[in-house]
């Protein structure tokens, strides 16, 4: 008599409970986030996100280092406001945005994943919501991360906001400001990237929309004295203006633009980006 058993581990029927659209969306969000960050992929796919992260976090790390080394000398004069850190990492955000949106959606069209996804419980809408969620989640790491690091770091050094209530309020404002930047840039980038099936072209399209319009606005406002409100069609700088407004400040270029117009302008860009994205995918054949 023996207690040994041979298990049949071959292909077999599934008797358990299947997940629905929610589980499908979670899987796509996780897979896309990993893909953007290069996790589970070859080393060369990790290089770009790591470089961008280093550039994005560098200003916060420098200011924190100075605070640790010099301490009180920084107080007031040299230490930036938390919201100003968004501006210091501006180029890192731009570069990351041009990479994230094409990686999130164009790759599926090129690799044949889109028809496979659409043959599952996912619909075009739930697929795009999953992709948008992954884009927002990864961009939040890069956009919110540095100011969050600074907030925690300065607090540890005893230079943080006074009182727990103020600390939470500062944190909430930073999260909201970062979320606005991410949603606006993400929506515009996804909209622009959805216009092509080539990743390189998609990145160029994102740069053209963001930098092109920003350059145009600068020339018009500073060159031919166009009204300051023209800055509302600048999708690159407009979302960054929400941060100072949350902290009762205004940045120099937007001094003459009211807060309600800034918010409306950002909303407009989100609608434009999402609308372009939706229109592009409505045109795409399913199978």
């Amino acid at each position: 008599m023996t207690s040994a058993e041979i298990f049949d581990r071959g292909y077999r029927r599934f008797e358990g409970t299947r997940g629905g659209r929610g589980s499908a969306m979670r899987s796509v969000v996780w897979y896309t986030t990993k893909s953007i960050l290069g996790l589970g992929r070859k080393a060369r796919h990790k290089v770009f996100p790591v470089i961008v992260a280093v550039i994005a976090f560098l200003p916060a790390i420098i200011f924190l280092g100075m605070a640790i080394l010099i301490g009180d000398l920084l107080e007031g004069e040299l230490r930036p406001e938390y919201w100003e850190l968004f501006g210091f990492s501006f180029m890192a955000f731009l570069v990351f945005t041009t990479m994230v949106a094409p990686e999130a959606i164009v790759r599926d069209r090129r690799d044949g994943m889109l028809p496979l996804y659409l043959s599952t419980p996912l619909t075009k809408v739930t697929y795009l919501i999953s992709k948008g969620t992954a884009v927002i989640a990864t961009m939040m790491i890069i956009v919110l991360g540095p100011s969050l690091l600074a907030l925690v770091g300065f607090t540890v050094q005893g230079m943080g906001p006074d009182g727990f209530g103020t600390w939470i309020e500062t944190l909430a404002k930073l999260v909201l400001a970062a979320f606005t930047i991410v949603v606006v840039l993400g929506a515009v980038a996804l909209g622009a990237a959805s216009l092509t099936d080539r990743r390189a072209f998609a990145s160029v399209a994102v740069v053209m929309v963001l930098l092109g319009l920003s350059f145009f606005v600068e020339v018009m406002v500073n060159g031919v004295d166009a009204p300051e409100t023209l800055r509302l069609i600048d999708p690159l700088n407009l979302p960054f203006e929400v941060a100072p407004r949350l902290f009762d400040a205004k940045s120099e270029p937007f001094v003459e633009v009211s807060t309600s117009l800034v918010l409306l302008g950002n909303l407009g860009w989100v609608v434009a980006g999402v609308g372009t994205l939706a229109a592009s995918y409505r045109r795409l054949g399913a199978v």
């Binding site: 599934f14 299947r18 997940g19 629905g20 589980s23 499908a24 899987s27 796509v28 897979y31 589970g40 992929r41 070859k42 796919h45 790759r107 090129r110 690799d111 044949g112 994943m113 028809p115 496979l116 996804y117 043959s119 599952t120 419980p121 996912l122 199978v287």
Partner: peptide, 25 residues
Amino acid sequence: PERNLMPEDMPASDFVKHLAEVRGM
């Protein structure tokens, strides 16, 4: 599907596993 396109740098096991999850596993 008819088209023979797939994510080039993805291992076959990850590809099949991911689509099984998306289909509710």
